[in-house]
């Protein structure tokens, strides 16, 4: 038996056993499923660490030092200029972050977290404005202009007008559904106006339709994965029967 074939058989056996272990959850939560998920977490954690080390940390922090050698480090050559500021700052921040490992020194390791959180927050705000709010609003406005948009569902004339209206009403009512501010009534309780209540209910219908579509998409994707798993077990059985 060739190496490749034996690897296919052993690998296929492991993959099939693991698939059955995972799918055994359909009967009930059981030790086999627990074992498979713990193997998965351990392996994924190790793999994620490997990828991060080789794709981010090593090229940015270790390679410049290794490249410069002992002489470059001792002469301070690699600490000069913009790259030097980045390198020294990055090592300092990692050193401070490592203080988070111990509860007694944890409070001194906040600066890297503050930088990480504020950069992430600013990127989210910038990304939301330039990547979602402006493009989506522009697209929503452009979709109202029949001359700018080619019909997506092959519709013409009146059908197009109806579709554009559905898009407009759906977008606005869904957006309005998320508006939770309300006027305070005589009894002190907040209440929406009748008009706003109707708009919000219409928005809820559109949200239900969108979630229904997403649900169907997720169900189809997972059904394909289920079929692929069953097929792979079948292929493995075929391979074993053909070999022995």
């Amino acid at each position: 038996m060739s190496d490749l074939l034996s690897r296919e058989i052993i690998g296929g056996l492991i993959a099939s056993v693991l698939t059955v272990m995972v799918l055994s959850y359909l009967i009930a939560d059981n030790p086999l499923f627990q074992l498979a998920t713990h193997i998965f977490i351990g392996l994924t954690a190790g793999y994620a660490g490997t990828i991060v080390l080789h794709s981010v940390l090593k090229p940015a922090l270790l390679d410049p030092i290794i490249g410069a050698g002992v002489e470059g480090v001792l002469s301070g050559e690699i600490f000069a200029g913009g790259e030097g500021i980045f390198l020294v700052g990055a090592w300092l921040l990692i050193g401070m972050l490592s203080l988070k490992l111990s509860p007694s020194t944890s409070r001194w390791g906040s600066l890297p977290i503050i930088i990480l959180v504020s950069v992430a927050a600013a990127s989210i705000v910038g990304g939301a404005i330039t990547g979602t709010l402006i493009p989506q609003s522009t697209t929503a406005m452009e979709s109202l202009n029949p001359s700018l948009v080619t019909p997506q569902t092959g519709e013409t004339g009146f059908e197009r007008l109806v579709n554009v209206l559905i898009l407009l009403v759906g977008t606005l009512s869904t957006l309005m559904y998320f508006r939770f501010t309300a006027q305070r009534g005589p009894t002190g309780e907040g209440s929406r106006s009748k008009f706003m209540s109707w708009v919000a209910r219409t928005g809820q219908v559109f949200i239900a339709i969108t979630f229904g579509t997403m649900f169907a998409g997720a169900l189809m994707t997972s059904l394909i994965a289920l079929a692929e798993r069953v097929e792979s077990i079948g292929s493995f059985v075929d391979l074993v029967l053909a070999t022995f």
């Binding site: 709010l133 898009l167 407009l168 759906g170 957006l175 998320f178 559109f206 339709i209 969108t210």
Partner: peptide, 19 residues
């Protein structure tokens, strides 16, 4: 049409919330 309308509203709502 229908899902895109709802999805666009949801995306805009999420973007406003994230901002």
């Amino acid at each position: 049409v229908w899902s895109v309308a709802g999805a666009r509203g949801i995306i805009l709502g999420v973007a406003l919330g994230a901002t």
